[in-house]
Nucleic acid binder design. Structure first.
Length: 467
RNA sequence: GCUCCCUUCGUCUAGCGGUCAAGGACGUUGCCCUCUCACGGCGAAAACACGAGUUCGAGUCUCGUAGGGAGCACCA
């Protein structure tokens, strides 16, 4: 049998990092077993589902490379099939119509609650022959016995059937509810392994009952723990739960996000770095932890730096270009992207940092960083900068070696350390005290821009001298 | 309230009864390297929630306590 997994988000909120991890685990499990991975959009809650949320799911998975072998399937398009199954269940007597007033059900719940019991429906209509087609349809949950889930992560979990009530599988308007659609879909799509958040663990016995009623075998289950924010609380918008695409916009690499997520709640000895191929080869539900994990932004950043450093320059060009353009930069006004990436990727944490720290290559700055200018653009360095200007002006070949030599020789002639000259130079041409190594900085900037800015810096110092 | 799940350094984790006076990684921190930021190199601090059992021996098994989490919808 082909191992088949699925990711089944409901588009009621933007897909966040927790959802992506669930998708990743399912995807990895399928890939590891040479199986199939299916994307299914559970949009039966029409009131809360949005197209925007669907788009984030599609775009997010595409961005991360979590490609699916079938789908996306939309549950709203499968209404006919659900009706068919409901009719079948009705026919077989596994379900019944119930026209209990909401108020009555509410009352029963409250009474149970105040009695210290679990709130549940009392099965009032179970033996009545309600024919009202505007009634909801409830499932006849077994009253006795136990339902045992042999969960791949949680181990054996035992539920007493008497704890469960007769759940509604179809609303008064005839539309199916979650537990029914999940079972029908998992059955029809021949899902062999369900990997999902452990918030669904409590739903599982109900779903198993429905599988049984349908004469189908339930899949294997693996309920993975949820992930928490750095404070150990439920993920909220502030924690990036606003959607996976936020990570792209913040300059994270898919490889880093995936590597970070795969190690969140799963481990393989002491290994930290996993390429996609590595994780596919190593992934197994055996390595999944049972406890919830908090996300740690610093570690994600560390991984991002790792993948940035090791990325092929050309793969970063497009995403960096997007980010630079977001900053309003005209790419024609500065260095070639590949050259830029080659020097910046070793010293930035994200592509966004890279973009922000590269602005000066493209746009002239209006003001200097105040502190840097005050510290480095001082009269003492004036003659050295003037001498350097002359040396740089004479360079025929604008390359790292020549630039470096010009700076070092000028410093040597004036008997000052290279650093004493390099920093003022850096401030003059970049406006700040931080940039790539000085020779790279000047080379990428180009001779013309360098000299123009250096000239401006010298003029500023001269102005200081005279005042 | 009831049912289910969880509990090793700040965080992610290794650990599957003795090799653990608990290992790795991020972060923090000391030193080195250095034209700035960063990288890199060498170090350091830092944890088995608590209490009973079982056992010659428990981070590892059992039970309880405490603390977290999830579910109990005509939401998914």
């Amino acid at each position: 049998m082909t191992i088949t997994t699925r990711f089944a988000p409901s588009p009621t909120g933007l897909l966040h990092i927790g959802g992506i991890r669930t998708a990743l685990f399912s995807w990895l499990f399928a890939r590891h077993h040479n199986g199939k991975f299916i994307l299914r959009i559970e949009d039966t809650d029409r009131a809360r589902s949005t197209d925007a949320a669907v788009q984030v799911i599609l775009d997010g998975m595409a961005w991360l490379g979590l490609e699916y072998d079938a789908g996306p399937f939309y549950q709203t398009e499968r209404a006919e099939r659900y009706n068919e199954v409901i009719a079948q269940l009705l026919e077989a007597g596994h379900v019944y119509r119930c026209n209990c007033a909401k108020e009555r059900v509410e009352q029963i719940r409250n009474a149970a609650l105040s009695r210290g019991d679990k709130p549940r429906y009392d099965g009032h209509c179970r033996s009545l022959k309600v024919t009202d087609t505007n009634a909801v349809i409830r499932f006849k949950t077994p009253v006795h016995g136990q339902t045992i889930i042999d969960d791949q992560v949680q181990g054996k979990v035992i539920f007493e059937n008497s704890e469960l009530d007769d759940l509604i599988i179809a609303r008064a308007d005839g539309s199916p509810t979650y537990n029914l659609t999940v079972v029908v879909d998992d059955m029809d799509m021949a899902i062999t392994d369900v990997i999902r958040g452990d918030d669904h663990l409590n739903n599982t016995p109900r779903q198993i009952h429905i599988f049984n009623a349908l004469g189908a075998n339930p899949p294997n289950y693996a309920h993975i723990p949820m992930i928490l924010n750095p404070e150990g609380k439920k993920l909220s918008k502030r924690d990036g739960a606003s959607g996976v695409l936020a990570y792209r916009d913040q300059g994270y690499l898919p490889a880093a996000v995936l590597n970070y997520l795969v190690r969140l709640g799963w481990s393989y000895g002491d290994q930290e770095i996993f390429s996609i191929a590595d994780m596919i080869a190593a992934f197994d539900t055996k390595g999944i932890n049972k406890s919830a994990a908090s996300i740690n932004p610093e570690k994600l950043l560390w991984l991002n730096r790792h993948y940035l450093k090791n990325a092929e320059n050309k793969t970063l060009a497009k995403p960096l270009a997007d980010l630079l353009q977001n900053l309003g930069i005209n790419l024609n006004n500065g260095p070639d992207l590949i050259d830029l990436i080659d020097v910046q990727k070793h010293r930035t944490e994200t592509l966004r940092d890279m973009a922000e720290q590269s602005v000066f290559f493209y746009n002239d700055f209006e003001t200097y960083d105040e502190h840097a200018a005050k510290k480095h653009l001082r009269p003492v360095i004036l003659t050295a900068l003037q001498a350097l200007q002359g040396a740089l002006q004479q360079l025929q070949d604008w390359n790292n070696n020549n630039i470096k030599r010009a700076i070092e020789e000028t410093a040597a002639q004036l008997e000052i350390k290279t650093g004493r000259l390099a920093q003022p130079l850096r401030v003059a041409v970049t406006g700040t005290s931080v940039s790539p190594s000085i020779d790279d900085t000047l080379r990428l900037l180009g001779q013309e821009k360098t000299l123009r800015r250096l000239h401006k810096g010298i003029a500023l110092i001269e102005l200081r001298c005279s005042s």
